[in-house]
Amino acid sequence: MATIREELQAAVKKLFDDDKIDYFVGYAEDYGHTFPAILTKDSDPSRLTFDRKSYDNLANFLPELRGSRVGLICKQCEVRTLNVLAAEEQVERDKLVVVGVPCPAMLDPRKLTEGAADLDSLDESYWQEKCRRCLERNTPLADVFVGERVSTPTPAEGWPLLEEVEKMSAEERLAWWRRQMSLCIRCYACRLACPLCYCHQCFVEDNKPQWIDKSVAPENNLHYHIIRAVHLAGRCIECQECSRVCPVGIPVDVLNNVLSRDFAERFGYVSGETAETQPALTRYERDDKEDFIL
């Protein structure tokens, strides 16, 4: 039986041979890492893979390739992202070939120790948090599906770290955030790894007026993180890439989770849940709940 790797490589080769796509965006394995790779017809697909370290949300590379026909590996994370991007008219679905995969749950690189054993066998304690909450392990509505379908365990509820933070007193919580913010180096990787942060110019880059001081200090850093989270209110699809890429390990997605939970509770709204999901904040319905507006 062909491995998913072989099936994937064959599928990509066929897409190129049939002239269905100009680019393929997937994961390659090389020099000890699995990383996103953009392939053309003339590339060598033999390093393409899909494994438990296929972390990146590949939808993040679509703006760069806009206008071209793109094949894209889509996990549930990418599917939800595409749903939001489509609602915001940021992707041309007809130019996209969705390559579906059975997602084996991604591992949390921070939980992996050097030379960990067989990655395929690592249990839930090594998973990324988002994978415990996954709604569907097999890519829905895939144009091409590679690999054997897997079953999706019942999604876990709640955001453990958020709940932990919320248990703190106001003073403790402020102190906790201050400590986290003092670590931030404002590399903006959290923003740039986010597939929904696609503005051509971010508010942190504005200088007339300059909304936020460029100096790196806890209060400025917090200012940045809060506005980043608010700009994702009702949009964040909880892929947790922002936290994964943070070089100093700040769990920045906690801020996003607060808002995701509010949207779930207030509006019964789950961002990017279906292809029909429309943006929550720019829609107005006469029967929208107002009970939380003071």
Binding site: E29, D30, A37, L39, T40, D42, S43, D44, P45, S46
Partner: peptide
């Protein structure tokens, strides 16, 4: 060989 096998080819 390019890393990951990606080549532009143009």
């Amino acid at each position: 060989t390019p890393p990951g096998g990606a080549r532009h080819g143009k």
